[in-house]
């Protein structure tokens, strides 16, 4: 296996995915969870840039990545808005407090 830039990017994407899902699975702080979602989003957008590069349509790949940044940000904003409300109502950011609905 040769270390082309492409492999490096691919490894980067996989690492970001790993970090993101690890955060989602382990973290109990709501803010950290939203950060983990953002990391996942970044993995996806790098993947798009890479995909555009692979098939020779770098421009389109980058355009799509821009769109993802916008969409991702909106989700982050909504998530943070909910986090503010959670802090206000529950007095904590621990998602253990957010497990009353079950069964």
């Amino acid at each position: 296996m040769t270390w082309t830039p492409l492999t490096l990017v691919l490894i980067g994407v996989i690492c970001l995915l790993g970090v993101g899902f690890y955060g989602l699975l382990i973290s109990r702080n709501l803010i950290k969870i939203i950060v983990a979602l953002q990391i996942l989003g970044k993995a996806a957008l790098i993947a798009f840039v890479m995909a555009g590069n692979v098939n020779g349509q770098t421009g389109q790949g980058q355009a799509l990545a821009m769109t993802i940044i916008v969409a991702d940000t909106i989700v982050a904003v909504v998530g943070l808005a909910l986090a503010v409300q959670v802090r206000r109502r529950f007095g904590t950011m621990d998602i253990k407090a957010l497990s009353n609905l079950k069964g």
Partner: peptide, 10 residues
């Protein structure tokens, strides 16, 4: 149906 977010992600 644990209600815990981490489990849901799992």
């Amino acid at each position: 149906q644990t209600g815990a977010l981490n489990w849901n992600i799992l």
